[in-house]
Simulated scan of single mutants.
Amino acid sequence: MKHYGETIKELRVSRNLSQQELCKGIMSRSNLSRFENQEYVAGFDKVIQLLDSLGVEMDEFLYITNDYQISGYEKYYSQLIYAENRRNSVELTQTAAAIKLAAEKHPTRRFYELYLLSQMALLESNLSSELTIDQISSQMRPVLLDTENWLFADFRRLNNFLRIFNVEEAIFLYGRAVKEFEKYEEFPRENNIRIYLALNLGQLLVEHGQGEKAAFYYEEAKDYAGRKNKLFQKLTIEAALEKVTQTQIDHQYVKGFSELLTVLDEMGYEDTVSALKNYHN
């Protein structure tokens, strides 16, 4: 990973800006030069101002500083979700083992929770795990139930560990999360968490024989996905809705959905089709 000053210099040069032009109103030219040459640590507020002048967002800045790679945590998290969605036992076992090693190498709370998540994924796939669901639950329940002021990471945490709660607790936490989520409506990294939170709550309700309630949350997820123009997520929700209301859906719709999956498969979207079928079957 590069020094922040080195990345600032790289961005400045790419914009054909002199040091004097970039630092105007922010810091002295000599301090910028020292920062770019890793001889000075600029304050966070100064870095933000420099990035604003360069027209670069913090997420992109960190991505460039990390040599155009996502963080190790995000890499392992993506691999885990991918293996779980594909229901690939070998891939899931290998990913969980890699996450365990990474958590040992990076003994942070974030990596430890990823380890807990990987163990839960193994259990849900009926694979050998080092922990029981009760052990995972005992560590994550207090974290989520005692959270007062939610941050973005807390929404993701709830989405990941929603299944450790009973139905009543899950519904309560979902309602609280949606209310807290209002302050993140315009957050650039909003992504799909609110959509999947409603979808996962629906799945939990289905497993507890509460299909009618599940359909309500699926509809909430569908509405939010529509407002955010998330096509794949809408298809995922349609698959889940079809499963809980199939006796009420007209045959033509069912046929249309199946034909859509066939078309996607023929176009080479095998992984997308596989993921959609996981929600439907």
Rank of each mutant, 00 (worst) to 15 (best):
Ala225Asn: 07
Ala97Cys: 12
Gly256Tyr: 02
Glu168Cys: 11
Arg156Asn: 08
His280Tyr: 06
Val244Thr: 06
Arg86Leu: 09
Lys46Ile: 03
Tyr224Gln: 06
Val206Pro: 00
Tyr82Ile: 08
Glu168Thr: 11
Gly43Pro: 02
Asn229Asp: 15
Ala97Thr: 13
Met267Asn: 04
Gln20Cys: 05
Val13Ile: 14
Gly209Trp: 04
Arg194Tyr: 04
His251Ile: 13
Lys2Glu: 11
Gln246Phe: 08
Gly226Pro: 07
Ile171Met: 15
Cys23His: 02
Leu127Arg: 04
Ala221Ile: 01
Lys277Asp: 08
Gln19Asn: 12
Thr245Gln: 02
Arg34Glu: 14
Trp150Leu: 07
Ser274Thr: 08
Glu36Trp: 02
Arg87Ala: 05
Pro107Ser: 02
Leu131Glu: 01
Leu205Asn: 00
Glu104Trp: 01
Phe155Val: 07
Asn85Val: 03
Ala170Ile: 01
Phe161Gly: 00
Leu199Ala: 02
Phe232Gly: 12
Asn16His: 10
Ser128Thr: 14
Asn37Gly: 05
Tyr279Glu: 00
His280Ile: 03
Ala97His: 11
Ala42Cys: 09
Ser33Cys: 12
Gln19His: 11
Gly55Cys: 12
Arg29Gly: 04
Ser30Thr: 11
Asp223Ser: 09
Thr236His: 03
Lys24Trp: 09
Glu39Ile: 10
Ile48Pro: 07
Ser28Ala: 07
Ala102Asp: 01
Gln203Glu: 12
Phe155Cys: 07
Leu22Val: 13
Leu131Arg: 01
Asp265Met: 09
Tyr269Phe: 15
Gly25Ala: 10
Thr262Tyr: 08
